[in-house]
Design a binder for these strands. Structure first.
Lengths: 163, 163
DNA sequence: ATAAGTGCAAATACTTTGCAAAGAC
DNA sequence: GTCTTTGCAAAGTATTTGCACTTAT
């Protein structure tokens, strides 16, 4: 009674997001599909992007210049965000490592001003509550690997990045 | 003709933000000061928080649950954000390193689900434009060190974090 | 005197939501 | 038949902005 049903529009929204490397926002996805699917509504795009995020099928890159941006590739990888125009680029691991070490801009390329490293998860309180209430973890936490100690879902790929 | 003038309210806003470790949003700052400064307006808080960000006096931690959150400590350091309740914690470097290596939750503490590492700066296009147009870099880029090669402002502390 | 700062309220802009109709199973 | 998905438009909400007034220099 809480399952997900097939929806052609949902599929198209996912495909559209996965078809680009521009890390767009909801409106871009809507606009692209609108010509092909005239009776698509922006609300549906928002709804489904949220669904994908919670299912771990896509990645939210957070709000850039007032608009939430998404990545159709859900495996975590470094990004570059231009603080001037909002362009988002996938950052090859090799380049990321160079930037970490270098601390200055690379010739003919973008200039790194600063970076942010943020850990996401559950604080002690919320973790306790989510276990107590229903045994159900927040949707954001589902679909991931589990802690070797306590069986809680956890993302282990942190080991691989820049370690 | 483009200077900044003293403002008591501005000082208070900065002090208020620096007085807490909770990484609050604009409204919290406003609420705290309202009792002491009854004729303070929310718009002024927003305006000045933006000013501080551009001057590098505070740090924006991005939008968490729909609200932009700030850190009165402007030197970059790792944070933990609870994806359930939005709590933001400063993360001691030692713990950050452990989390990078461990990839699983720590006993009686928060659970790391995933982290994001984002580089901010200027892409090639914008960099070119900002040089051409006026010789003035976007405000976000000011007040920082300069690239040893091209003299463009750049934040060099990336070298020190987890390298 | 001049330019910057502020209060206030209206405007923006992105996102969410309520509800009735349509669709999947 | 039941539960999910959707279109549509309205509501919601954080943030920005215009303008007249105030304040700093």
């Amino acid at each position: 009674m809480n399952g997900r049903k097939f929806s052609a529009k949902r599929e198209e929204i996912l495909k559209q997001l996965q078809s680009t490397k521009t890390h767009p926002g909801a409106y871009w996805v809507y606009e692209q599909l609108k010509s092909r699917i005239p009776d698509l509504s922006l609300g549906t795009v928002y709804r489904n992007l949220n669904v994908f995020c919670k299912e771990g099928k896509i990645l939210s890159l957070g709000v850039v210049k007032g608009e939430e941006r998404f990545d159709g590739i859900s495996s975590p990888h470094p990004h570059f965000i231009c603080s001037c125009c909002g362009t988002i680029l996938d950052l090859p691991m090799k380049k990321a490592k160079t930037l970490f070490r270098g601390g200055f801009c690379t010739k003919n390329s973008f200039l790194i001003d600063f970076r942010k490293t943020v850990f996401y998860g559950l604080c002690g309180n919320c973790r306790e509550n989510s276990n107590k209430d229903s045994g159900v973890l927040p949707l954001e936490m589902t679909g991931r690997k589990r802690c070797v100690k306590c069986e809680t879902p956890v993302f282990t790929d942190v080991i691989n990045f820049l370690s």
